[in-house]
Computed example of a mutant assay.
Amino acid sequence: MQVHIVRGPVSDRHAALLEDNYRLRHRIFVEQQGWQALRRSDGRDVDAFDNADATHILLTKSDQLVGGSRVTPLDRPNLLQTVFSGLVQDDLPADPSLGADWTRFYVRPDRREGRRRTPESAALFCAMMEYALNEGFTFITFVSSLSMVEHGNAVGWRITPLGEPALVDGKATVAAWIEVSEHALDNVRRATGMRRALIPASPPTRGPSIPLYAH
């Protein structure tokens, strides 16, 4: 499997991968999970946060997209503080410039049938923590069902709710933050068996132009 860290401007080759990501997201979040507010006639899940500030962590196997997620700096417009602000009752653990919002996590449906934890989700969890460390973030926020919190706890992450769970589209949903640390990376690698680095280490940088990396 290859992990790709994609941030604009994007080359034509990488634009095709990003387009596959938008279409697969629509298939999963709209057609399967029923997020009707995201439905678009062109079959692409693209919102206001798929912009120049966003980084997409995409996973391929044999050149086929099998999973992905999106990261947005918390000192830029983000999903947590714009759409899900009602779930946030507590303060962030540090200045927003030190955090990122993690959204749109998915694994292609045929890769997770009948399996509680997939190699794809393990790779995405490890890549997320590697990316956060490389960028100099100290915490990651997310909004999800309670099962995602349980999954994070199971891989040894320190997760702190930002408020009480609430029903969103009929499901118990919570906003929370994850502590970013080398210890958290060690824990998730140990729990998932992903021993090697998935993306290359680099000095912390959050400029507008980052090339796609493939390991």
Rank of each mutant, 00 (worst) to 15 (best):
V83G: 07
F84R: 12
S85T: 03
G86H: 14
G86L: 10
L87N: 05
V88T: 08
Q89R: 11
Q89G: 09
D90S: 13
L92P: 07
A94H: 12
A94R: 10
P96F: 10
L98N: 14
G99A: 11
G99K: 11
G99P: 10
G99M: 10
A100S: 13
D101T: 09
W102A: 07
T103N: 11
R104S: 05
R104F: 04
F105V: 14
Y106H: 08
V107E: 05
P109A: 11
D110K: 00
D110G: 07
R112S: 12
R112E: 09
G114C: 14
G114W: 10
R115Q: 13
R117M: 01
R117P: 00
P119H: 02
E120Y: 02
A123K: 02
A123Q: 13
A123H: 05
L124P: 14
F125A: 14
C126W: 01
A127Y: 03
A127C: 06
M129L: 15
E130R: 07
Y131H: 15
A132D: 10
L133N: 01
N134F: 01
E135C: 14
E135K: 11
G136L: 03
F137M: 08
T138G: 13
F139H: 12
I140M: 14
T141P: 03
T141K: 11
F142I: 07
F142N: 06
F142P: 00
V143T: 14
S144R: 01
S145W: 05
S145T: 12
L146V: 14
V149N: 00
V149F: 03
E150A: 15
G152Y: 02
W157S: 03
R158L: 05
I159R: 06
I159H: 07
T160D: 08
L162E: 00
G163N: 09
G163H: 06
E164N: 00
E164A: 05
A166T: 10
A166K: 12
A166I: 04
A166Y: 07
L167N: 09
V168M: 03
A172W: 12
V174E: 09
V174K: 12
V174Q: 15
A175G: 05
A176T: 02
A176W: 03
I178G: 00
I178Q: 01
E179H: 08
V180R: 04
S181D: 13
S181N: 06
E182D: 15
E182M: 11
E182Q: 14
E182K: 13
L185F: 02
L185W: 02
D186A: 15
N187L: 04
V188E: 13
V188T: 14
V188H: 11
R189Y: 04
R189I: 13
R189C: 10
T192Q: 01
T192E: 07
T192A: 04
G193Q: 13
M194E: 13
M194A: 08
R196T: 10
P200R: 00
P200L: 00
A201G: 06
A201T: 13
P204L: 00
P204A: 04
T205A: 09
T205F: 10
R206P: 01
R206G: 11
G207N: 10
